[in-house]
Structures are given as structure tokens and as C-alpha cells.
């Protein structure tokens, strides 16, 4: 815990007191959706940032989680909280199997395998009509009763989960496992020769990523109340990648910041399209595409690491400046 830094206190204060500032249900719902996306993004940043792998199929785990929870609560009338646990475990099992299968792949092969997995899951969701309702989807998924079925209750539940996931991930980064992750990212060969079981850690990253995505999917299903296969495909997987890339792949906080940036853009575009109907197409993808291109070309490290290094160089400049001033004073007194 001690390695996480002071940022966590600022974060906690913001999370606890944000509903006081945004009492309107619209803003609360934006924050809930932001939290739901942030959970997936944190998981993906472990896969992409820490072990240097790529998953262009993260929306599939999200979808498996959402449908698991939805089916269990509507068809078998299991309590949403138990269903959420299943929604986390089942995608993690899928992630384990997928990661075991593609353990030998990297680079473009890994990208293709995860892309293919994403398509397969989305197609299976739309085709398995008896369970998932096919293309028409499911309705009437019960909402979660977390101190009352309110927007505020959902807000605290979702951000509670975000906080747990965040603390877990920040601790993971600073642990032995996190050091192994970073060693793998720098050089797999060097890591292997130091006795790090590369396959095991890459597998672990995938499973954690799948678990978080599934949990978030379950929350999404209960929050929205209806499901159809459309959001669980390529487009959303790219949105998750955009989030992680904006914030900075190598930084867990980056996932959180990236989610805020993307959700603000999305909300902005939605309200703009009310006044300019021409913006209603897939115009959001223009923005995401431009962001991806600009970030990779001009700021490949992402927002959070960039800001951190700027703050550090500012501090450094200030401290050297004070040292110079002090030395000048000393010289004058010596005279």
C-alpha cells in the first residue's frame, strides 16, 4: 500500500464528494458509465501496458460478463450480487483458455488471434438465440439494489468496484509480479533468462484483464437493463484501446484519465448531435481515430506519463534555480 502515493487520497476525496457537485441524474449516469468503462480500461492497461501484449477483443470479455449476469438473473432469478461474481469468473475462465491457447503468439499474430476471438464471441452471442435472445437481445434485466435502486446507489457501487480494482492493480504493479511484468515488456529473452516464467505472467495479465472486463460487463447489464450484441464487438474494443492509449499504456492511472477524456468527448458529441444532426453518424470514430494517430505519432507515452515528466522537470528546474540563488548568496556573504 505504501508505494501507491498521495494521488490515491485526492482520488478518494473526488469519488466520495463528486455526487454532491453533480446531483443531476444525467451527470450521475455519465459518471456511472465512466466508472464501468474505467474498470475494463484498467484491466486492459495491465494486458497492454505492463506485459506489452495487445487485445483487440476486450469487448468480448465485457459481453460475456454482461450476458452471464443478465441470463443468471432473468432466467434463473439468482441475486444480482451472486450473478456479478459469476460475471467476473466466467470471462476470466475464457481469458485463461484463450491465453493458454495463444501463449506462443506475439505481435501481429496475437493481434489477429484476439481480433478473431472478439468476432467469434459477438457472433455466438447473436446466434445463440435461445439463451441470449439473438439480435433482438434481452430486456428487463433487474437493477441492483445497493442501498436503494437509485442512480446514487449505482454510482457508489460502481465507483466502489473501480476503487477496489484500482488499488489491486496499483499494488500489483509495485509487487514482484509487477516487476516481472515490466521485465517482460522490456525484453522477453532477458526476463526468461532471469528465471521469470514469461508464459505464466502473460497468462495472468490476460486473466486479470478478462476478469475486470467481465465484472464491468455485469454492472453494465444491470445498470442499462437491456442488452443486445451490438456494443460487444470491434468498435467497442477499439474504444477501450483508445482509452488506454490516451492515458498512457504503462500507467494504471492513465486508464482512469483516458476513460474520463473519452467519456467527455462522447457526451460532448451526443449533446452536439442534438443541435447538428449531421454529427450523428459514426462521427465519434473520426475523433477516436484522430486521437489514436496523433498520440502514437507525437506522444506515444500517453497523457499521464507525459504530465508526470513535465511536473518532474518543472520541479527539477525550480530546485536547481533555488540552489543557484543560494550559492550566489553564499558567495556574497563570503565576500
Amino acid at each position: 500500500m505504501k508505494n501507491i502515493g498521495k494521488g490515491i487520497y485526492v482520488y478518494l476525496a473526488l469519488v466520495i464528494f463528486a455526487p454532491l457537485l453533480f446531483q443531476d441524474d444525467y451527470y450521475l449516469s455519465l459518471l456511472v458509465i465512466t466508472g464501468i468503462y474505467a474498470i475494463v480500461a484498467i484491466g486492459l492497461s495491465i494486458v497492454m501496458g505492463l506485459t506489452g501484449q495487445i487485445s483487440i477483443g476486450q469487448a468480448a470479455f465485457w459481453g460475456i460478463g454482461a450476458y452471464t449476469s443478465a441470463v443468471l438473473t432473468t432466467k434463473y432469478e439468482i441475486s444480482p450480487f451472486l450473478a456479478l461474481i459469476a460475471a467476473a469468473i466466467i470471462p476470466a475462465v475464457f481469458a485463461f483458455i484463450l491465453a493458454r491457447a495463444i501463449a506462443g503468439l506475439s505481435g501481429y499474430y496475437l493481434a489477429m488471434a484476439t481480433l478473431a476471438f472478439g468476432y467469434i464471441i459477438q457472433i455466438l452471442i447473436s446466434e445463440w438465440e435461445s439463451v441470449t435472445g439473438g439480435a433482438t437481445g434481452m430486456i428487463g434485466i433487474p437493477s441492483i439494489d445497493f442501498f436503494g435502486e437509485s442512480e446514487l446507489g449505482m454510482y457508489y457501487l460502481v465507483w466502489g468496484v473501480v476503487t477496489v480494482v484500482l488499488l489491486f492493480s496499483l499494488n500489483l504493479v509495485e509487487s514482484r509480479v509487477g516487476r516481472a511484468f515490466r521485465a517482460i515488456h522490456k525484453s522477453e529473452i532477458a526476463a526468461t533468462s532471469m528465471g521469470i516464467d514469461v508464459r505464466k505472467y502473460r497468462l495472468l495479465a490476460f486473466v486479470v484483464g478478462g476478469l475486470f472486463a467481465g465484472l464491468s460487463g455485469g454492472l453494465y447489464a444491470h445498470y442499462v437493463g437491456t442488452l443486445d450484441p451490438q456494443p460487444f464487438g470491434f468498435h467497442e474494443s477499439i474504444v477501450f484501446i483508445t482509452i488506454v492509449v490516451i492515458g498512457g499504456m504503462t500507467n494504471i492511472w492513465g486508464a482512469l484519465v483516458g476513460t474520463f477524456v473519452i467519456e467527455m468527448i462522447r457526451a460532448g458529441l451526443t449533446s452536439l448531435s442534438d443541435t447538428f444532426p449531421a454529427l450523428s453518424g459514426d462521427v465519434d470514430t473520426i475523433v477516436y481515430g484522430a486521437i489514436l494517430v496523433l498520440i502514437i505519432m507525437f506522444m506515444p507515452e500517453g497523457l499521464v506519463p507525459k504530465i508526470q515528466s513535465m511536473v518532474q522537470s518543472y520541479k527539477h528546474r525550480r530546485s536547481t534555480a533555488t540552489v543557484v540563488v543560494q550559492k550566489n548568496k553564499e558567495r556574497e556573504t563570503a565576500r
Partner: peptide, 24 residues
């Protein structure tokens, strides 16, 4: 960059950019 993951993200970005412009 010559990192395959960065390059793939770059060209995916370009591709959804073109697609978005086309839908516009």
C-alpha cells in the same frame, strides 16, 4: 516507431478515422 503494437494501433486509428469521415 517500429513496435508492431504501436503500428497496428496507428493504422487502426487511421482506418476508423477514414470510416468515420465516410459515414459523415
Amino acid at each position: 516507431t517500429n513496435n508492431p503494437i504501436s503500428l497496428i494501433i496507428l493504422t487502426i486509428g487511421l482506418s476508423i478515422f477514414i470510416k468515420g469521415i465516410a459515414s459523415f
